[in-house]
């Protein structure tokens, strides 16, 4: 009991016994999962393991049928909607890069900045020097400074992925959920993204869902393997990839 209470007090994100079913199909089955502050965590698992559904639950898109989802030990995320949760400091990158294609790179970042998001706050918003510096910083981080006035639609696939990561940074989240960030990237871009994520994880927690085992090895962090809606194994990449259940369910095929 003590240990559980202890992990809870330390955790940034805490899921316990979470279940959700769609028309009888258990997408998530009593899943328990903890992320600590400043942690970079990788999640692997076969298709249909519930990775994306888990993110949906954390970000308020899907309500779990049962279970506890806590942020910073006290905030019950199951009672909040997407906007609330984003404002609490959880950012999410989608599987398919989702940026505002008819805005410039700069505008995309300006929209994402963690400022007053109300109707009147945005109506009368003026770009301050401070915000300008911040956007320029992020542009540097995601290597898009030279394309800042370009419409996002004209970016390459990899650049869109980075722009989206940049938007998440502008949001200044405490926890970042990243869904398949390197899908469709060239090898060089993949390596680059691993570096970027490690850099980001220095100041906040990051959870990465990926299929690319090479990429996860590059990250060199604790790995959680999901299957059929619950945790199959957890530990270092070598430990997890030698687990016979993981090999049978995921790697072996």
């Amino acid at each position: 009991m003590n240990t559980i209470a202890e992990t809870r007090t330390k955790s940034l994100l805490y899921l316990e016994n979470v279940s959700v079913a769609f028309d009888g199909f258990k997408a998530i089955n009593s899943l328990s999962f903890v992320v600590e502050p400043g942690e970079l965590r990788a999640i692997i698992g076969p298709n249909g393991a519930g990775k994306t559904t888990m993110m949906d639950i954390i970000t308020g898109k899907t309500r779990p049928d049962s279970g506890t989802v806590l942020f910073e030990d006290s905030i019950d995320l199951t009672k909040k909607d997407e906007a609330d949760i984003a404002q609490l400091g959880i950012g999410r990158k989608f599987q398919k890069p989702t940026v505002f294609e008819s805005h410039t790179v700069w505008d995309n970042l300006e929209l994402a900045l963690n400022r007053d998001r109300g109707v009147f706050g945005t109506l009368f918003y003026r770009l301050t020097a401070e915000d300008k510096t911040r956007i320029e910083e992020i542009l540097e981080t995601v290597r898009l400074t030279h394309r800042k006035d370009e419409y996002a639609a004209n970016l390459s696939h990899g650049q869109k992925q980075w722009l989206e990561i940049g938007m998440l940074l502008a949001q200044e989240p405490k926890l970042l959920l990243v869904d398949e960030p390197v899908a469709g990237m060239t090898d060089a871009e993949t390596v680059e993204t691993a570096i970027l994520l490690k850099e980001i994880a220095k100041t906040r927690s990051v959870v990465v869902v990926e299929h690319d085992m090479g990429f996860i090895r590059d990250l060199g962090v604790k790995v959680t393997c999901l299957a059929e809606g619950s945790v199959l194994a957890e530990g270092s990449i070598d430990f997890v990839s030698s687990d016979p259940k993981v090999i049978e369910n995921y790697l072996g095929r």
């Binding site: 984003a86 404002q87 950012g91 999410r92 989702t98 505002f100 805005h103 300006e110 994402a112 998001r117």
Partner: peptide, 17 residues
């Protein structure tokens, strides 16, 4: 700009808070 964002990618706007 947020408005156009809603038009083009509503869920992104939502997840931006």
């Amino acid at each position: 700009k947020v408005l156009v964002g809603v038009r083009d990618a509503e869920s992104r706007v939502r997840f931006l808070g």
